[in-house]
Amino acid sequence: MSSRNLAAATSTEALTTELPVGRSTGWWGMVMFVTTEATLFACLLGSYFYLRFQHGGEWPPGGIAQPKLLRPLVMTAVLLPSSLPMIWADRGIRRGSRRRLRYGLVATILLGTTFLVLQATEYAELFHEFTLTTNAYGSLFFVITGFHGLHVLIGLTMLSWLLAAALRGGSFGAHRHDRVRNAAIYWHFVDAVWAAILFTIYLSPRL
């Protein structure tokens, strides 16, 4: 038995002071999920350029005006920095600070919601000019931005869910923050994709 005790005293668990050790399965799962989602967006944006260059004529086609820049730039200024409070919250809970987690989540949710509201006002304006069914450009515009908007909505749902769990107490701490980490990865991904969409939809027609 003494050899067993010795083994237990020198096992990895006994010698490790910091928990959890190594990447969690949840982390890997989320990274793989985000990878496949990123591929989906790559295909979507690739389809945009394929249709544009195969079309060959003026772009946007059918007399649709160039997309206006002001509002999308404001939306960018709202969405991209929304990752910062998320990082702050994530780092906070890793040190056991539930206060930082809660405030960080609230700030991120507010910024994300602002983004969606701005997108809704943009849609309301554009619907007078063209829609999903006007032509392939309209289909691309609304499917790409709408699909991204859906991702923002899903991200906001995840963050609200985290906030609810964080407010209940007993959910997260320095040793248990996998869910915060994973939702944060998703949120950063949604932000990063927006940069690609901004370039493709709003900036590239002007090049």
Binding site: C43, S47, P61, Y137, G138
Partner: peptide, 27 residues
Amino acid sequence: LDNAMLFLDRRFGTHFFDPEAAGNVLL
């Protein structure tokens, strides 16, 4: 994505694969 586009084309009138409205069948 391909299937989603085909479904949207068929059901909701988008034009991803419609050459008459700047779409492309080879996509």
